[in-house]
């Protein structure tokens, strides 16, 4: 897949062509092609570092894939850059800085904490604190309502006693009307 931007009509056409060509392409891939073997660093430790870092970097072409997962040509290029730079002794932070300088924070799956991302990182905390505050307010209000309801007047107490003793109807009728 070449990295390019198709106009809409062409994109639809390309999709149709891709769908049509998929079985063919797969058939071609299954024929062992030494040219298609992925580049791998000889040192396994280095390769695992490359993959670890690649999983944290977003592919700009297939935006929901990391450059470790994507096979877009740009992802392959960037993976090679990561490998090359780590092999030459640069630290992981150096490599990340190199890519951020060119593609921006967008390449990072984990956005950095700074002024523009304050709401992003602080949002959940804000929601938690807000929710907890609201809950505390509601609970306190309910408690005071219950407490307020707990104070009965002498007449109410008297009536409650009568009700509990079964001496009165739960209405305004007088006890004598009971037959």
């Amino acid at each position: 897949m070449p990295v390019e931007r198709f106009p809409k009509a062409l994109r639809a056409l390309a999709l149709a062509a891709l769908l049509g060509a998929t079985p063919l392409a797969m058939a071609q891939q299954s024929v062992a092609d030494p040219g298609l073997a992925p580049t791998v660093a000889p040192d396994p430790q280095l390769e695992s570092d490359v993959m670890e870092l690649s999983h944290k970097l977003r592919c700009l072409v297939c935006q929901n894939q990391s450059i470790a997962e994507s096979n877009a040509p740009l992802a392959v290029d960037l993976r090679n850059q990561v490998r090359e730079q780590l092999a030459s002794g640069r630290s992981k932070d150096d490599v990340v800085d190199y890519l951020v300088a060119r593609y921006g924070d967008f390449v990072l799956y984990e956005p950095p904490f700074k002024a523009t991302t304050l709401l992003l990182w602080g949002g959940p905390v804000l929601l938690l604190v807000g929710g907890a505050g609201w809950l505390a307010y509601r609970l306190r209000r309910r408690a005071s309502e219950v407490a307020a309801a707990g104070h009965l007047s002498e007449a109410e107490r008297q009536r409650a006693r009568e009700l509990l003793a079964g001496a009165a109807q739960p209405s305004s009728e007088s006890p004598e009307s009971r037959s």
């Binding site: 990295v3 931007r5 700009l60 072409v61 740009l74 290029d77 060119r102």
Partner: peptide, 15 residues
């Protein structure tokens, strides 16, 4: 040829 300068410019698609 190898797209290295493209990476330096942050190119991720053409044009």
């Amino acid at each position: 040829i190898d797209g290295r300068v493209g990476i330096d410019f942050g190119v991720y698609g053409v044009p």
